[in-house]
């Protein structure tokens, strides 16, 4: 007696080959989820004790990054300002604003404001701000347009493939040191050349290649070796 219909033959063949695609699709989905903001939090505005606006303070008022993040040029950690830095100005302006009540409370009581870390690298990765700043990596190269962020979020995935993208070809991202803190810096172009030591550059790669030499970057082999970041 024939239990299975004739079409089952085709179906069984299709299933065997189809399994390859099913497994491939699963792997693809896993990789996509791993890179998605669900895992990386990229673009996610996390709750903070005070809805501090970088857009207002940076673009609106023109305050330099280093006014608050004082140790970024000399330390591995950029520095989160103490409440006193807020009060340098807010003891004078917006002194009754309800939004700033946690700041005043923190200043009075001496208790720290508990901010949520936004750009949080995994603990097995060693990272140092000062070396990147001093070799010509702009703030917004990694942090994105902070001057257009009313609420802070991490622009990059902060995953290893993202780090390596630059470590494998630093010349594609470097800029002159005096432009590192310029949030509106534009890469050199035909219409807007960037001048370094009197020489105008019209494309990023030739500028970057010269800056790699000028700032004495280690070789790509060095900066892509495991122990550079995993110490």
């Amino acid at each position: 007696m024939q239990i299975f219909h004739r079409s089952t033959n085709t179906l069984s063949r299709a299933t065997i080959y189809g399994a390859i695609f099913v497994v491939a699709a699963l792997f693809w989905a896993a990789a996509e989820i791993q890179r998605s903001p669900y895992v990386t939090y990229a673009g996610v505005r996390r709750p903070q004790p005070v809805p501090f606006s970088h857009q207002h303070h940076v673009a609106g008022l023109g305050i330099d990054c280093r006014y608050c993040h004082t140790s970024v040029e000399t330390s591995s950690f950029a520095g989160i300002p103490p409440t006193k830095t807020c009060m340098n100005c807010h003891a004078q302006i917006w002194t009754n604003a309800a939004l700033l009540e946690p700041v005043r409370e923190s200043y009075k009581s001496g208790k720290s404001l508990v901010w949520t870390r936004v750009n949080d690298l995994p603990d097995f990765a060693y990272f140092n701000h000062s070396i990147h700043i001093n070799k010509g990596v702009g703030c917004n190269t990694c942090h994105g347009p902070v001057d257009r962020m009313p609420l802070m979020y991490n622009q990059a995935s902060l995953q290893m493939e993202w780090c390596l993208e630059c470590h494998r070809a630093p010349e594609k991202h470097l800029r002159p040191r005096d432009q590192v803190f310029n949030m509106r810096y534009e890469e050199p172009s035909e219409s807007k050349p960037v001048e370094v030591d009197g020489k105008p550059y019209t494309d990023q790669v030739s500028l970057g290649t010269d800056l790699v030499k000028k700032y004495k970057l280690r070789t790509v082999t060095d900066i892509t070796s495991c122990s550079t970041c995993h110490r």
Binding site: K111, S112, V114, R117, D123
Partner: peptide, 21 residues
């Protein structure tokens, strides 16, 4: 475990000290 190691990042919160620093 490797991602969140039992060490403090700069300025991280600590429940050990009364001022949480």
């Amino acid at each position: 475990d490797m991602h969140d190691q039992p060490r403090f990042k700069p300025f991280a919160r600590s429940d050990f000290y009364t001022d949480l620093r």
